[in-house]
Every structure is written in structure tokens, then in C-alpha cells.
């Protein structure tokens, strides 16, 4: 018997995201998801955490928003909880205080850093309320991620699959292609695709983007299409590519600032009250 499959969003969950049901526009949800994942990534780097734990955290974070609205939980807290949980799952647990310190820095920087980049961090006091508030939020967020995902936190990371596919396509000699595809896989962690498509599809999309950008030709005329080798469907691969490329679009300065002010559920609720009539 093979290992149980990892969960993916059902059609119903894709069509009706809880945040959109609460009136949060789709593009805002997308930006907030990406920003929350960036915070997880930054925290992971500052904590010198392993990439497997960071990637797992980002995937759990993306799954969470298919069952919960951003009006109920802030992306800051949930990202912190997801990273804490994923570090346990990948057998490299974090100290709670380290994680909280790092998130406090990131949240303060998001809230107060002027565009000039001149920001000084004021560390929290050791026994201060700020610490205990964040600690409570962390414990609650971890538990909520577990509870709302039904304790099924099985995550499959794409890296091994990419290595296999690159070998099969005889592309391991093209280091530029390999590292580019690897990079697309990591960037895709900021999009919901890991909660929407199986790993072979996502890896195929990363290879497609890498080879197209580097002008490497692969058999692509039916009936000999390389992605069919990996049981990926063209429409899905194309859609994943779309998600990834949309990450790189230039955003207006307004949009950039908008997400920074919406890290907590309070911020989101305030925004909804101000913009609810649209």
C-alpha cells in the first residue's frame, strides 16, 4: 500500500475562499498570502532555519487560507505558528523565544519602517507583555493550523522530484536551467499552487519557465510532449506558470504599502470597514 496522499483544495474550496466570502478582494488576498510567505521566508533566514522547514511552513500557511478567513486570523500570527509547527515536523524545532524575537522585529519593521529604509529596532523586554502576547498568539496559531487542517499536516516538497525530472530530460548538465527551475519552485511557495496542484504539475511548470527563459527546446508537439511524461496536464502547468509570473509584476507603491498595514486581523477588519461598500 502506498503512502496516503497529501491534501489539496477541493473545487468548492477553490471557488469560495473564506476571505473572499468575507469581502476581501481576490487580488488583496493574493498579495497578503504572498506577503505572509515572505515574512516566513525572512524569519527562516534570520533564524538560520533549514529550507525544508521554511517550505513546509509556507505550504501549511497557504492551505490554511482555504479553510479560514483573514478576518479571523492575521497573516503574521499564522505565519509564525506555521513556521513553529513545520520546524517540529521537519525535526528541527525552534526555541519559542527566538521565533518570537524574530517575528517581533519583522512586524515592527513592517509597521514602522519608513520608505527610506532607516529603521532602528527596539527589542522587547525579557518579561514584557509584548513577549507574552506574542507567545499566546503563537500557541493559538499553531493549534489553529493543526485543528483547521484536521491534523493532516502531510507535506511533500518538490525538490527531489525536480532532480529526477531534470535527469530524465537530460538537463542536469545545464546548471543555469537547474538553478532557475529550483528558484521558480521556491518562488512558487509564495503562491497558493502547492495547495492546488500535485507536485509533478508544479515541477513541470518550473521546468517550463526555466527552459523557455533560457531558450532550451524540449519535445512539445503532440503526441510527444515532455510534460505528459510526468502526468502533468498542459492547462494546469500553464496555470501554475501564470501564478508564478504574476508574483513578479510591478506593483504600485500604494499596493506595496497596503499589505504592510494588514498583518493582523484587526488591520484587516479596519480595512474592510473602510472599503466595505465597494
Amino acid at each position: 500500500m502506498s503512502r496516503a496522499l497529501y491534501p489539496l483544495a477541493s473545487l468548492e474550496q477553490v471557488e469560495k475562499s473564506p476571505s473572499r466570502e468575507d469581502g476581501i478582494p481576490a487580488d488583496l488576498e493574493e498579495d497578503l498570502r504572498a506577503y505572509g510567505c515572505k515574512l516566513i521566508h525572512q524569519a527562516g533566514i534570520l533564524l538560520k532555519q533549514k529550507q525544508v522547514a521554511v517550505a513546509t511552513a509556507q505550504i501549511l500557511f497557504q492551505r490554511f487560507w482555504f479553510v479560514t478567513s483573514m478576518k479571523q486570523f492575521g497573516i503574521g500570527d499564522v505565519g509564525m505558528g506555521a513556521l513553529y509547527l513545520a520546524s517540529k515536523l521537519e525535526e528541527c524545532p525552534l526555541r519559542m523565544r527566538d521565533l518570537i524575537n524574530v517575528y517581533d522585529l519583522l512586524l515592527q519593521r513592517a509597521a514602522h519602517a519608513p520608505p527610506s529604509g532607516d529603521f532602528r529596532y527596539a527589542p522587547m523586554s525579557y518579561f514584557g507583555n509584548a513577549f507574552y502576547d506574542l507567545k499566546d498568539a503563537l500557541v493559538v496559531a499553531e493549534m489553529q493550523v493543526l485543528k483547521r487542517l484536521g491534523f493532516d499536516v502531510h507535506v511533500v516538497l518538490p525538490y527531489g522530484t525536480l532532480v529526477n525530472y531534470m535527469r530524465l530530460l537530460d538537463l542536469t548538465g545545464r546548471e543555469d536551467a537547474v538553478s532557475r527551475a529550483w528558484g521558480y519552485l521556491n518562488d512558487a511557495l509564495q503562491t497558493p499552487v502547492y495547495a492546488l496542484y500535485p507536485v509533478p504539475t508544479i515541477v513541470s511548470a518550473a521546468i517550463l519557465l526555466a527552459t523557455r527563459h533560457l531558450h532550451i527546446a524540449l519535445p512539445s508537439t503532440p503526441p510527444n510532449c515532455w510534460w505528459e511524461l510526468f502526468d502533468a496536464e498542459w492547462d494546469d502547468v500553464w496555470s501554475v506558470c501564470g501564478y508564478v509570473m504574476r508574483l513578479y509584476r510591478t506593483r504600485s507603491a500604494e499596493d506595496e504599502e497596503r499589505v504592510k498595514g494588514m498583518l493582523t486581523k484587526k488591520d484587516v477588519r479596519r480595512w474592510l470597514e473602510e472599503h466595505g461598500d465597494r
Binding site: L5, P7, A9, R63, A195, Y197, P200, C225, L229
Partner: peptide, 26 residues
């Protein structure tokens, strides 16, 4: 790919999308 007429079979490592469970809260 050598058998174009046959419907693409899924390898056991890439089961069809519909077999994946959805997210179910506890």
C-alpha cells in the same frame, strides 16, 4: 508517449487530481 492512441495512464507516483483529499477541519 509512444502510444498516442491510448488515453494517458497515470503513473502511481502521480495519481489523478481527483483522488487527493481536500482540507478538512477537525
Amino acid at each position: 508517449p509512444l502510444v498516442p492512441s491510448a488515453r494517458p495512464r497515470h503513473s502511481i507516483y502521480a495519481p489523478p487530481r481527483i483522488l487527493y483529499p481536500s482540507f478538512r477541519p477537525a
